Simulated scan of single mutants.
Amino acid sequence: MRISGNTVLVAGGTSGIGRGLAMRLHEAGNHVIVAGRRKELLDEIVAEHAGIGAEQFDVTDDASIRELAARATASYPELNVLVTMAGIMVPEKVLDPDSLEITERTVTTNLLGTIRLVHAFAPHLVSRPDAVIATVTSGLAYVPLPLTPTYSATKAAVHSYTESLREQLRDTSVQVIEIAPPLTRTTLMGAGTDNELAMPLEDFLTEIMGLLEAQPDARQILVDRVKRQRFAEIDGTYDQILALQAARTS
């Protein structure tokens, strides 16, 4: 992926990592369009950052995604980068019957949302030179957090989907990149911006932008902090890290 000169749509770019990445891409010389559900946040971003576009949509609604793709590709025909950032992370207890609603909402948002976005935008992107689809997974795709089993499972599924997507598009102009963040200081699941166990958001964004620039042909973008989870199976530390994430002492 070239670091500047793109027209980028960040789906789920109104808060957290999505918003931060949208701002960094904007500052790097890209035309950025932020897409999200909350109009007040979209309006705030447009007011504060000259040149950024905004599109409202609901990642849980297939019709809304298809309408977003039609609007965005008509308004920005040069669009060549899609970042599928939208996601939710909510604790679940499998013995609580109310948790099934959380499970289904998480799958719809994190997994179906990503897949529907790809299906909606891919026909346009294959017609553009230097095109990119960037999916966002997590270190929890590789070692799950038992407190959030469906979130972890959807991120593992997005990783698998991304691998297949890259293979299917290998003879097109579309580069497929997986971005796998570690625990980062955002408001996701109330992690908080002062959580000492989490990577500071600005540090994460700086490292990500550096990796994108240094590795233009990258298949996967991994900051150092996430590599312990990413390579746990290979390193033989999977059981240890799973126990740690489960807060087990024995």
Score class of each variant (00 low, 15 high):
184 T>N: 04
171 D>L: 08
197 L>K: 14
228 R>Q: 13
192 G>L: 01
79 L>K: 00
160 S>Q: 12
139 G>I: 02
64 S>K: 09
89 M>E: 14
212 L>D: 07
106 T>L: 06
14 T>L: 05
102 I>L: 08
199 M>N: 00
144 P>Q: 04
180 A>D: 12
235 D>L: 04
23 M>P: 03
232 A>N: 11
73 T>A: 01
95 L>S: 15
182 P>C: 01
234 I>W: 11
116 R>V: 01
186 T>L: 00
155 K>W: 02
127 S>F: 00
25 L>H: 10
169 L>K: 02
233 E>V: 13
76 Y>F: 12
118 V>T: 11
147 L>C: 07
151 Y>Q: 05
186 T>N: 00
135 T>N: 15
138 S>N: 04
7 T>K: 02
15 S>V: 10
42 L>M: 04
229 Q>I: 06
106 T>I: 09
126 V>G: 06
227 K>P: 04
88 I>W: 05
130 D>F: 07
29 G>V: 04
218 A>I: 07
92 E>K: 05
221 I>H: 08
189 M>K: 10
4 S>H: 13
149 P>E: 05
218 A>K: 05
142 Y>L: 03
29 G>T: 03
28 A>S: 13
62 D>T: 15
35 A>Q: 03
142 Y>N: 06
220 Q>I: 15
51 G>H: 01
68 L>K: 02
180 A>T: 14
176 V>P: 03
119 H>W: 04
228 R>S: 14
102 I>Q: 13
39 K>C: 04
109 T>Y: 08
